[in-house]
């Protein structure tokens, strides 16, 4: 896997020094091996700090909304899931495609540092990656799947939009079914589902991380920030508000959400927000035919489309009573 990082750095340097682009959007080293941040590099020297490893989970497409509107061309390294978001943004005219040089970069699943801690390894000073396993601190070998983000365990995505690919090893798809938990919830009784969501959503602190990180949340002014909307609020002053916020947010990205999983990754309280998005995705698939947002931009979005024979709102099967 270290070969990939070398190739990534070479490619970034080449793109910058050849003048093909004037800046590179990628990831920058942090204080530890796991706290990498998205960053823009303007020179080959600055690329010293660039990094690409299993902790580069952030979806760079979000930053392209602003970056692509600036002067000059920007090179970006997108993982398969990022390309879906980027494609969707192209469809919604939120990015300027001409200003972006997309390098589709290999991804074997990204890590969650909390999952490392759960295995009991303690402080993670270094991680050597292999295709199936990781070596922590040069001594403890852990199965790669044990430390992957949930979204990577179910990921079956391949790059959908790129100018060039940077893939050394073929990507292994996740084995798990992404709708498994949705189905489990549907099989619960209504009371159980209510209790589940009540407990989960009551943790919400309305930090808006899920909204601000979401590449589908591109409104210049969110309805929840707009005092004139009568629903703006800064805190969950009542249990109703957390439901309102999350239902409406998920609804607003329904049919546009590419299931990149960023909302769940960033939630400080670990609320499984992807389960809301996946419910919409699974409903759309069931009611209106298979649809994957961001995959094919020629296809009409499910909520901007209709057929005369659509299912009636009173007739869906729904979860158990």
């Amino acid at each position: 896997m270290q070969r990939l990082e070398v190739a990534f750095l070479e490619k970034a340097k080449e793109l910058l020094s050849s003048g093909q682009v004037n800046r590179v959007l990628a990831y920058k080293k942090g204080e530890f091996c796991y706290d990498v941040s998205p960053a823009v590099f303007y020179s080959v020297e600055e690329l010293e700090n660039a990094v690409y490893n299993g902790f580069c989970g952030a979806n760079l497409s979000k930053y392209l909304i602003q970056e692509s509107k600036k002067e000059g061309k920007v090179a970006v390294f997108l993982k398969p899931c990022d390309t879906y978001s980027f494609n969707q943004l192209i469809k919604e005219h939120r990015v300027n495609r001409e200003n972006v040089y997309v390098v589709g970069i290999e991804c074997q699943g990204k890590f969650s540092i909390e999952k490392f801690y759960k295995t009991g390894v303690g402080f993670v000073a270094s991680v050597q990656e292999d295709l199936d396993s990781v070596l922590v601190n040069g001594e403890t070998k852990i199965d790669r799947n044990a430390v992957k983000l949930e979204r990577c365990l179910v990921c079956k995505k391949q790059h959908v939009v790129y100018d060039e690919l940077l893939v050394i090893n073929e990507k292994k798809d996740g084995d798990l079914d992404r709708f498994e938990m949705v189905k489990k919830l549907e099989a619960m009784t209504a009371d159980e589902r209510f209790a589940f969501w009540k407990e989960q959503l009551s943790k919400c602190i309305r930090c808006n991380a899920c909204r601000n990180v979401c590449p589908a949340c591109t409104c210049t002014k969110c309805v929840f920030d707009n005092d004139d909307s009568q629903i703006s609020s800064k805190a969950n002053a009542d249990s109703f508000e957390e439901k309102l916020f999350h239902i409406i947010r998920a609804f607003h990205v329904a049919g546009r959400c590419t299931d990149c999983g960023e909302c769940s990754r960033v939630c400080p309280q670990n609320i499984p927000l992807h389960l809301l998005n996946r419910k919409y995705i699974s409903d759309i698939n069931e009611f209106y035919g298979e649809f994957e947002a961001g995959k094919d931009i020629a296809q009409k979005g499910p909520l901007t489309n209709y057929t005369t024979g659509d299912i009636e709102p009173n007739d869906f099967k729904g979860g158990n009573k």
Partner: peptide, 22 residues
């Protein structure tokens, strides 16, 4: 109303998913 139908179907299904009486 066709668009409304799709929206309401998804919304009602979500409410049901959250355990609210459909």
């Amino acid at each position: 109303n066709y668009y409304a139908r799709r929206r309401m179907t998804l919304l009602f299904s979500m409410l049901d998913y959250l355990g609210i009486e459909r």
